[in-house]
Design a protein around this nucleic acid. Sequence first.
DNA 1: GCCACACCTTGACATAAATCAAGGTTCTGC
DNA 2: GCAGAACCTTGATTTATGTCAAGGTGTGGC
Lengths: 252, 252
Amino acid sequence: MTIRLSDTDHKPEPGRCVHDYQLHCGNCQLNSICLPLTLETDDVEQLDSIIQRSKPLQKGQFLYRQEDAFSSVYAVRSGAIKAYNTTDDGREQVTGFYFPGEILGMDGIGTNHHASTAKALETSAVCEIPFSSLEKLSAQLPSLQRHFFQLMSREITEDQQLITLLSKNSADERVASLMLSISIRNAKRKLSATHFRLPMSRVDIGNYLGLTVETVSRVFGRMQKMSILSVDNKEIEILDPKGLQRLANLLH
Amino acid sequence: MTIRLSDTDHKPEPGRCVHDYQLHCGNCQLNSICLPLTLETDDVEQLDSIIQRSKPLQKGQFLYRQEDAFSSVYAVRSGAIKAYNTTDDGREQVTGFYFPGEILGMDGIGTNHHASTAKALETSAVCEIPFSSLEKLSAQLPSLQRHFFQLMSREITEDQQLITLLSKNSADERVASLMLSISIRNAKRKLSATHFRLPMSRVDIGNYLGLTVETVSRVFGRMQKMSILSVDNKEIEILDPKGLQRLANLLH
DNA sequence: GCCACACCTTGACATAAATCAAGGTTCTGC
DNA sequence: GCAGAACCTTGATTTATGTCAAGGTGTGGC
């Protein structure tokens, strides 16, 4: 259960693909949805130089824990991470799922301590971006400063959409919205928008959406019966995208 | 229903207090909880020079509306503002109440359009902070950049706390938490932590907390019966702070 | 290849909060 | 100071989702 981020003695095995460890922002396929988005080539190199890449996290390992001192934000390179809060009375609330190209950890900036715990849902690689370096570089590169402000702002609007979902929508609408969100985010990464494997358990989905496992399971059952989804354990196929949007209440 | 922010021909009436219109960040009593928090005297003056103050908003007037082009963030100087999202199907979700010293409008940075509508709950004065100026100044003043990153981060963690509240807590716990939040924010402004007037309606409270008006009203009734609160319409007195914390589930 | 455990599904029942309904109170404009 | 509107309260009833319970399925370790 050790965090391996600082482990640097990794030697690529002969004959094994090592591109993960030679990756730079400039040639990363995710850079169109990640931090370097709006940067010029020279600026990307500067950003690249502050980013630390490391060995992948295994399923169940922690990227950071609630109350840990905050020092970096992280970009997911591969895999999937869940972030969750633990309340005083020990209950957990999943606040987000992070897929490749997405940034997490910004909730620690305000207090210098992480306000949530981040855990790998499957084997995942992340880029660590030391915040102090990011701050300095941001002051020099207006487009980076702007971009980071925008990322944080988007995190705010996404949280507010989740607030609305939890407060106003039925179990079916919530699950449909999550499936659509994952579908859209897959499409952005040039993956199938209609056929994917969920990295998280039903418990995690329920926790994120404010529902019990049983309810999530029943909703999947109903959607399957309505031929909107085909659900085979964690394999999801969206059979009727319009129907799913209608269920999510996104189609007038 | 006009927004009066750009109205500048105000002439102080003789014998009427005009200090609102001569206020600077340097002498503002709220500056310990507002933007200038960590700035040196010279820097405060620079910040002060970009801030636009204006005539107060009357109750019901809009500071900005969802979809409006984003150009500024706002600090509340007096009164109270509510922010809410309107969904595609016309339902509203209150995402926050903003009191003096608090900053709103940051949800517009990500897309250059406001993601919510901000409406005055009572006569309110605000300071308008043009974002382009704030960005430029932030690049020059590291402590301002840091402070603004922190403000956005705190907005994220607060939204995540609301997510947890909506997802995991009962009606009583939600209402108790809101009362405590208002009490704590009042204390920060050197106002009474135990006796205050709610600027928002029961409908707004219910909307914010994901409850109906009837439920909110019944919860207040119950708390009154338990001698935790004294509720006289919008006048609230916290009779038993410990009891309220226990109800909010914040006391082990 | 099998055991154990975590994960998922389905059914029966309980319940918190929503909905529906009616009446009371407070505020606002004239 | 009055009329109308907006706001708030309280009661009776319904309902979506939670809880409890039991059994099925997939998966990783040995």
